[in-house]
């Protein structure tokens, strides 16, 4: 078994309104920063042991599908690194 850290990044699907990001963008502009757009994302780091990177990815992918992301509004990606 090898120790891995899987990083799951969950973003709103393109076109889904992100009111928190919009509020954050406006607050940055009020502070005088110049920016065109801002998107927010959630990131989860999951430590786990698996036979190989493929198995680790598969397990974390299922975690994302079943709980961490809501497929109606989210896209996600999983990256796996040896720990």
């Amino acid at each position: 078994m090898t120790a891995y850290t899987a990083t799951v990044t969950i973003r709103l699907k393109h076109g889904v309104l992100d009111p928190e990001a919009e509020t954050t963008r406006r607050a940055l502009e009020r502070l005088g920063f110049d920016l065109e757009d801002l998107r927010s994302a959630d990131r989860f780091e999951i430590d786990l042991e698996a036979e190989d990177a493929g198995e680790a990815t598969e397990r974390v992918d299922e975690m994302a599908q079943r709980l961490l992301a809501n497929p109606t509004i989210h896209d996600y990606d999983v990256e796996v690194d040896e720990r």
């Binding site: 889904v16 309104l17 992100d18 009111p19 928190e20 919009e22 509020t23 809501n70 109606t72 509004i73």
Partner: peptide, 17 residues
């Protein structure tokens, strides 16, 4: 209900945040 698949769609952050 939506999270468990009883109904479709999602209820998410209000536009006003």
């Amino acid at each position: 209900g939506c999270e468990s698949g009883l109904t479709e769609g999602a209820f998410t952050t209000n536009e006003s945040a």
